[in-house]
Nucleic acid binder design. Structure first.
Lengths: 195, 195
DNA sequence: CTGTCCATGTAAGCGGTTACATGATTTT
DNA sequence: AAAATCATGTAACCGCTTACATGGACAG
């Protein structure tokens, strides 16, 4: 039950139309939550009906025309109460880990190295993108409000998660290529991480 | 589309009944994939209908009685082909990160520290549990087959993910308590990680 | 024979994904 | 006028979650 809260957060940061929200979910918000435009439009309808948001009257919403939403007090209160709620940590559910275990069970997966290297590359690119955001939005000398700190630690979470994957994938490639059934020695590109 | 493959993997490792599978999903398999008994029974039905698994005739399956399943060659082939397939890395979708961002947007979340500390504790417990498994199942002197290595790197993934959370939560607690709006100085229990 | 546990299911609802539809605006 | 793009939707499907139902085995 987090999508409505993600949308409320995004609208609090800046009132937007559905398509603008979609683009923001593809960018900064997408670092920790994804949503397609279909999800977003459906949820905007629900939130409006619940009295949590409203359509701004200014851009005169006719059919097929852009509708800009803003958060109402009730929506802000709902979001604030959700922030203070207890929630259990989300359990891991990762298909790649499962596939390695499946490879162990079938005895197959001879070409897994290639897939692991492909993922390694993707995570390195993602990490570079996050670091660029960090450089741009959180320069070290900046005066730091509590809000900026919160946003920064969230980004740090994304950065460190990507770093985890890069380290783990590199170690896994070494581990799997190091023994019988693979070429001996450690692959040079598997140990140099993207930092 | 990973649940059927998780079940095939589990059944390859050891033929089981639905309830036994449920328990195994609460334990070792649950480190990277979760499923409730309802999901499992439904999926067992589908897999049987698809000719990927079958009921063992030995425990004489009558109504309300235990039914033990095993993987058929077609199921093994399906699993093997899935292992070799390409799949994009799963994107992050974590409510806790979202809640921090929401706290930045509302300006609230004064009690977030408590929730972060609670998560920190839970992750430390999980990490300890994984380390215990590692100690028991993967002693250092062991002869290592490719299969053992695969299972070990999967467990290492779980261990390192928990370590990531512990580090990030500790850093975040320091960061948020260190400045204006919180007590000055770094909390001693926030920097000592559970390793 | 009653309650409890074991084991297998059914049903309803929700969130996420994919594909398709439609009106308005801008470009060529 | 046609094509491309912007913007807002609808519909169908699938997986996951929660709650409830049913039947057999066993203990008191």
């Amino acid at each position: 039950m987090s999508l409505p809260h993600a949308i409320l957060t995004a609208l609090l940061e800046k009132p937007s139309s559905g398509l603008e929200l979609t683009r923001r979910f593809d960018r900064s918000i997408g670092y920790f939550w994804q949503a397609t435009h279909q999800q977003i439009y459906r949820e905007l309808g629900k939130l409006e009906q619940a009295g949590h948001i409203r359509v701004l009257p200014s851009p005169q919403p006719t059919r097929g025309q852009r509708k800009e939403y803003e958060v109402l007090p009730a929506g802000r209160e709902e979001l604030a109460s959700w922030v203070d709620r207890r929630e259990e940590p989300r359990a891991v559910r990762d298909p790649l880990l499962l596939r390695l275990r499946a490879a162990a069970a079938t005895g197959g997966g001879a070409d897994l190295d290639e897939e692991l290297r492909r993922h390694l590359l993707l995570h390195r690119e993602q990490l570079a993108a996050y670091r660029e955001i960090e450089r741009r939005d959180f320069p070290p000398e900046r005066r730091i409000s509590r809000e900026d700190r919160l946003r920064h630690v969230v980004l740090r979470g994304g950065i460190e998660l990507e770093s985890f994957w890069i380290t783990w994938l590199s170690d896994t490639l070494s581990e799997l290529s190091g023994g019988p059934g693979g070429p001996d020695g450690v692959r040079p590109d598997a140990t140099a991480d993207g930092a």
